[in-house]
Structures are given as C-alpha cells and as structure tokens.
Amino acid sequence: MTEDTPIVVTGLNHWFGTGEARKQALFDINLIVKRGSLTVLMGPSGSGKTTVLTLMGCLRDVQDGSVNLLGHELNGAGRALNESLRRRLGFIFQAHNLHGSLTALQNVLMGLQVHGLPNRQAQQDAARHALRLVGLADRMDYLPANLSGGQKQRVAVARALVGNPDVIFADEPTAALDSGSGLTVVTMLKRLGETRGTTTVMVTHDNRILEMADRIVTLEDGRIVRDSAS
C-alpha cells in the first residue's frame, strides 16, 4: 500500500449468523481504491455493498482476508487502532442522523468531538467553515425541523467533512434527496477529491450520479461482477 492507495482489499470474505444459520455474504472481494477518487459501489439489495463499506470503514470486524486502510491492516486490529483510524474518516448515511434539539452548527460541532482540537474557538471556526463549504452560511443557527431535506443532508456532509478526513464513506447519501440536492452533495465530494485529495467510497442506487464517479464497482450475491477500472 502507498500514499496513493489508501484502501487495499484482498481476498475478503464475510459471514453472518452462526451454526446452521451461518451464511456467507462476501466472496473473495479484491479492490484497490486510489487517493482522491470517487468510487461507487452498486448492486441490488443484499448484494454486499454496504457490508464491504462497513468493513473498510472499521464499523465491522474483518473475519477473513485483508483490508488495509491508510497503511494499517484491519484484520485482527484492536479497538484502539480502529478508534484511531475512525478519527481520520468521515461518514455520511442516508438517514442524516441529526440531533433535533441541536442547531446545524451544534450538530457539526459534534463531528469534532473525536478530533480534540485545542480550544472551543478553533472548533467553532472549523464547524462554521464546513457549513459555509456546503452552502449553509445562513442556516447555522437553524434546528433540523426548520431545514429542508437537502439542507439536513448538507449538514450531515459538513459534519463528515469538518475533521478534514482522509476518506469519506457514504451509504446512499442522495437517496432521500431531489436531483438538484443530490447533485450538489456529490459535486462537493468530487471537488474535495480534486482539491484536498479526499477519497470517497459511496454506496448508491442513484443512476443520476454515475457519470461523476471515477470508478463503478458492481456487486451481485456478494461478488464483484463488474468493475469499470478493469
């Protein structure tokens, strides 16, 4: 693995359940993700794409095979290493998971809790900058109930970006958005790759954004069946 390949997946297999109910979900997944790229994982429900995403993002333990993330092997990694790596990652989910009692600014500040910035002013400055990046400079003090669906998702994007992560993992980030808002979110992630070298791996069913992807990997029944980089 080099600085230009922040994610290398080799011979990855995964199972769910135990005993007679144990079922294999992933079969020999091999994937190299380049720095600054926007990689899209596609496939029908149950194809394994979200499982791959969560294994790469330290959200699930690697059972068999290798996942090398930012120079660290995740198979056998302990809790301390996983927590350390998560500080270098950003996560965006279909459900924006905003706290309803907190303003947009306060929700983004929550994304900085694991980063340990030296003082509260530095945290405030970083959170405000992230919200300006996503076009919400005039909505910082709004509660989620007073934001549109697209604005809520942009707050979630700002929360993911605020720690300046090396890699962003996004699971269906545009599913609940109209075409304009979805395009805005993906354009933002694409720009981050070009300007900061931020790597994005995205699970989506959204055909509207495929032309923006640097690479499209299609899974079916736990196997990679197509890869536009091949």
Rank of each mutant, 00 (worst) to 15 (best):
M1N: 09
E3M: 08
V9Y: 00
T10S: 12
G11K: 13
H14R: 04
W15S: 11
G17T: 12
G19K: 07
G19N: 09
R22I: 08
R22Y: 09
Q24N: 06
A25I: 15
D28F: 15
N30A: 09
L31T: 04
I32E: 15
I32G: 13
V33D: 02
T39H: 00
L41Q: 01
T50L: 08
L53D: 08
M56T: 03
G57N: 08
R60H: 12
V62F: 00
Q63S: 01
D64N: 11
G65L: 10
S66K: 12
N68I: 03
L69S: 04
H72V: 07
L74C: 02
L74Y: 01
G76F: 02
G78T: 00
G78H: 00
A80D: 07
L81V: 05
L81E: 04
R88V: 10
L89V: 14
L89I: 13
I92L: 11
F93A: 08
Q94H: 06
Q94Y: 10
A95F: 11
N97I: 13
N97T: 13
H99S: 14
H99P: 14
G100W: 07
L102K: 15
L102E: 14
L105K: 14
L109G: 09
M110F: 00
G111Q: 00
G111H: 00
L112Q: 07
L117P: 01
P118S: 13
N119F: 15
A122D: 13
A122E: 15
A122P: 07
A126S: 15
H129M: 14
A130N: 04
V134G: 05
V134F: 06
G135T: 04
L136P: 02
D138V: 08
R139V: 07
D141S: 14
P144M: 10
S148Y: 01
S148D: 06
Q151I: 01
Q153E: 01
R154L: 14
V155A: 10
A156T: 05
V157T: 15
A158E: 06
A158M: 03
R159Y: 07
A160K: 02
A160L: 11
G163Q: 06
N164Y: 04
V167G: 01
D171T: 07
P173R: 00
A175P: 01
A175L: 02
A176F: 06
L177A: 04
D178G: 12
D178W: 09
D178K: 12
S179L: 02
S179D: 02
L183V: 12
V185L: 10
M188F: 03
M188C: 11
L189E: 09
E194L: 14
G197W: 09
T199Y: 09
T199I: 10
T200L: 03
M202D: 07
I209E: 05
E211T: 06
D214K: 03
D214Y: 02
D214H: 06
R215L: 01
I216N: 13
T218C: 05
L219Y: 03
G222I: 03
I224S: 04
I224P: 03
I224V: 15
S228C: 10
